[in-house]
Design a protein around this nucleic acid. Structure first.
Lengths: 202, 202
DNA sequence: TGCCCAACCAAGCAATTGCTTGGTACTGTA
DNA sequence: TACAGTACCAAGCAATTGCTTGGTTGGGCA
C-alpha cells in the first residue's frame, strides 16, 4: 500500500521531517484546507506528485504533525501534575510550559488552534477531542487544588477560569514571534502577574 | 453588471438578509474557504447558481457580513470612549460590550476571528486591518487612562495587557452559546473579577 | 389583459483540487 | 558489476470549485 520501507515507516527520515516542517508552516499560515499539495511541493522545490512518495495523503501529513506535537505536550503536563510543588507553583508551571510550547512549536500550536474543531469531526482525528478533554482535566485539577489549599480565591468559577486561561495562553500563538522583542518568559511573567493579582491597583 | 434593481441595491430585501444569515452560519462553522456556494444554496433550498441573482460573488457575501457588523461594533466602542465615565468603568463597559456582541452576533464574530488574517491580505478587505488598528487604539487609550488615573497598577505592560484582554474576550466566541446556562453578563462578570483582581487569594 | 420583475432552475464551463501511474537519476552495498 | 532502495519527474484523471448563461415561474400593478 505504502511506498515506505519498513525501516523508515516511523518517519525518522531527514527528508520527511523537512517536508513536514514545510507543510506545518503552510498549514499554520493559510489553513489546512486552504493549503494545496502543490503549495507544499512548490515550497519544497519538488512536484506535487512526489509528495506521495513520502506520505499517503495530505491528511496523513497534518495527522503526523499534530499527533507527535500532542504527545510531547502532554508528557510535559503530566510531569507538572505528578510533581510535589504546591498548587500555585503548579499553575505557574503549566502556564509557563504552554508559552514555551508556543515558542518552540508555533506552527503546530497554530494548526491545532485553527483546525482542531474541523478535523476533529473525522474519526481519524478523534484523538484531538480526547486530548482536549485531557487538557481540561489537567487544568480543572490544578484549579481545584488551588481552591482547596486556599491559594485561590473561593468565589472562582473553575470551569470559566479554565476557559479564560486556556484561551488567553494558546491564542497568543497568533501574535507571539520567537526571536522578537519579548521572550516567552517575558510573556508568561506578565500574564501570570495579571492572572494571579489582576490589573487593578491594589 | 448586477441584477439587482436600484431600490434593492442596499441589501434591504428580506431574502438577501436570509441568505446572508445562512451563509454567515456556514462561514462561521466551516470557514469561508471551506464553505462552497453549493453548501449555502443547499441550506437555503435553492440551486447554487441562483445565489448569483442576489450577490456578485461568494466574497461579496462575506464582505457584506463583516463590514456591517464592524460598523455596528465600532459605533458602540465610540460611545464608550466619548462617555464621561471614569477609566475603570470605561474598561468594564468595553469588556461587557464585547461579550454582548458575541451573544448577539456570534457568527459574525467567529468569521472575523477566523478569517480576518487571511481575507485581510486582499485589497478588498483592507478595512479589516484598519478596524483592527482602530480597536487597538481604543483599548490602549482606555488602559493608559487607567494608568494615569491610578485605577490600574503601575507595572503593567499596556501592549501585552491589551492583547490578553482582546484575545480572551473574542475567543470566547468559540465556546459561548446564547441561551445556554451562562448569560453574556455572567461571563463578563466573572472575567472582570479575574481581570481586575486576579485569581489568587488576597 | 398585458407587462414587469424578483426569484429561481437547468445545464454546463474553466480552473483547481488531491491523488495515481509509470518511469528515471543517483547512491550505497554486496 | 549488479542490484536495491530513495527521491523524484512527467503526465494526466476524476471530482469539486466558483461562476455564467439562457430560460421559466408567479405575484403585483396598470
Amino acid at each position: 500500500m505504502t511506498t515506505e520501507s519498513p525501516s523508515q515507516a516511523n518517519g525518522a527520515t531527514g527528508r520527511r521531517r523537512e517536508l513536514l516542517a514545510i507543510a506545518a508552516e503552510l498549514f499554520a499560515d493559510k489553513g489546512f484546507k486552504n493549503t494545496t499539495v502543490r503549495d507544499i511541493a512548490d515550497a519544497a522545490g519538488i512536484l506535487s506528485g512526489s509528495l506521495y512518495h513520502h506520505f499517503d495523503s495530505k491528511e496523513s501529513m497534518v495527522d503526523e504533525i499534530l499527533s507527535s506535537f500532542q504527545a510531547e505536550l502532554f508528557a510535559a503536563y503530566d510531569e507538572v501534575l505528578r510533581s510535589d510543588d504546591d498548587a500555585r507553583t503548579k499553575i505557574e508551571r503549566a502556564v509557563r510550559l504552554s508559552f514555551e510550547a508556543i515558542d518552540r512549536h508555533r506552527h503546530e500550536v497554530a494548526i491545532f488552534q485553527n483546525e482542531a474543531d474541523f478535523l476533529g469531526q473525522q474519526e481519524r482525528f478523534a484523538y484531538l477531542a480526547e486530548r482536549n478533554a485531557q487538557s481540561r482535566d489537567v487544568w480543572i485539577t490544578l484549579l481545584e487544588d488551588g481552591l482547596r489549599s486556599g491559594a485561590l480565591r473561593a468565589d472562582l468559577d473553575v470551569e470559566l477560569t479554565y476557559r479564560f486561561i486556556r484561551d488567553t495562553v494558546w491564542v497568543a500563538v497568533r501574535w507571539y514571534r520567537p526571536g522578537g522583542k519579548l521572550t516567552h518568559t517575558d510573556v508568561a511573567d506578565q500574564y501570570l502577574t495579571i492572572l494571579l493579582d489582576g490589573i487593578a491597583h491594589a
